[in-house]
């Protein structure tokens, strides 16, 4: 089946990111196609390039990037929710005259239309909230 995940919890504040990652790995291990994880609301902080958790804790940003690279899962971040919260990729940083980039690749900023599209196109969409 084709799955998508919607994640709206903040990393390290809520269990939502951990739960979503655990579910994502279970999905691909079972042979399902996880097309994308869409990050909305405070979930956009999962894309934070500058996150530096202690070494004995899971590195959630790296864990998402690893999942994406290993299983070709798109990591789509709502651009409107991200910009408000200080998460900018190179293009947006240039556009807003900021001298840093705060979104980790392969997370990509995209519109909410992508979420609607995923929800309609995939067989299942599972939401993890805070």
């Amino acid at each position: 089946m084709r799955y998508a995940i919607l994640l709206m919890g903040t990393p390290y504040s809520d269990q939502a990111s951990h739960s979503a990652l655990r579910f994502a790995h279970a999905l691909v291990a079972r042979g399902h196609c996880l097309e994308a994880v869409f990050f909305y609301h405070d979930g956009v902080h999962n894309a934070a390039r500058l996150a530096a958790p202690p070494q004995d804790e899971p590195h959630l940003v790296d864990a998402w990037a690893g999942l994406a690279n290993e299983h070709r899962v798109a990591l789509q971040v709502c651009i409107a929710a991200a910009l408000r919260r200080g998460l900018l990729d190179e293009r947006e940083a240039a556009r807003h005259g900021k001298d840093g980039v705060s979104v980790q690749a392969p997370f990509e900023l995209t519109g909410l239309g992508q979420l609607v599209d995923l929800g309609m196109r995939c067989d299942r969409l599972v939401t993890f909230g805070p």
Binding site: Y40, H41, A80, A81, G111, L112, G113, L115, V116, D117
Partner: peptide, 16 residues
């Protein structure tokens, strides 16, 4: 921001 962000999702879907 839950209400605002929920409404945004609804408006985008309707616009599509």
């Amino acid at each position: 921001s839950w209400l605002k962000e929920g409404l945004d999702a609804a408006l985008v879907a309707a616009a599509f």
